[in-house]
Design a protein around this nucleic acid. Sequence first.
DNA 1: TTTGCTATTGAAAATCACTTTCATCAATGT
DNA 2: ACATTGATGAAAGTGATTTTCAATAGCAAA
Lengths: 143, 143
Amino acid sequence: MKKSKRKLFHDFIARKGLKSTRQRDIVLDGFLSSDAHMSIEELYLKLRARHPNIGYATVYRTLKLFSESGIAREIHFGDGQTRYEHVAEGEHHDHLLCTRCGEVMEFSNEAIEKLQDEIAESHGYLVHTHKLELYGICPKCRK
Amino acid sequence: MKKSKRKLFHDFIARKGLKSTRQRDIVLDGFLSSDAHMSIEELYLKLRARHPNIGYATVYRTLKLFSESGIAREIHFGDGQTRYEHVAEGEHHDHLLCTRCGEVMEFSNEAIEKLQDEIAESHGYLVHTHKLELYGICPKCRK
DNA sequence: TTTGCTATTGAAAATCACTTTCATCAATGT
DNA sequence: ACATTGATGAAAGTGATTTTCAATAGCAAA
């Protein structure tokens, strides 16, 4: 059975000798209950609604910690903002983005992953990460 | 037969009612004779060697124009810099990047393109662009 | 070619999206 | 409860653009 993100993060905090704080829990709750691709600013604004005293720097630093702990991953969609997405143990996915309404959808495809490895190998590369984004118009916007 | 980038750009300038200037030609020559993935700063420094008076803003603005005119395309490799690559009529390629030495290699693969379209379609999306980057260690660095 | 209108240029100031600093607080071990 | 040390929020600092603005330089009409 898989451990909850909350537990994973608290374990990370303990392992690193860091402290468990009220603010970190607030950011964690906010992140876990949010849409998958939030920017620092977006999460900061969302949290500010309930916790007017939380600082941007705290959200920023905590999100970095999430990423270090493995429960989140930084992503860049070319709009100049750093976003954080949830990481599910052993899962990988790519993105399909609507350039009209901004919707982001996730997908994963074995065949593509396999092809990528083959291509890399044929060029002598040893790949450890990749990034695949498809930009287009989503079903709703097409109508 | 395909038109030269130089001609394409000059046509664009004329069509838009813009002016043909010495500086734009300097930036154009510099861009056309350069490696495929230059950042604004890199091109600016290269041009400064021969043309000490050219301004960063001019290089910046001209590169934007190249992109608008279709002879160049902006790309982001996640290093926080905007780079510009040459666009060849009707050609598309993806990138293989070495995370050790920074080398960038281009490749293209029909099968992957096809799979991407199929995936997008199966989600109801109409794709117009995509971005595929494979990060790994290049042959030279593996040795 | 001279003129007049408008686009372009280079330098500097302004933005943006982080990142870091620092004085003050708050967890945690004893 | 105390001391120690990491955490926080506000503000200052960065790096990479992006925009502003006064001075120029194309271009076309005369």
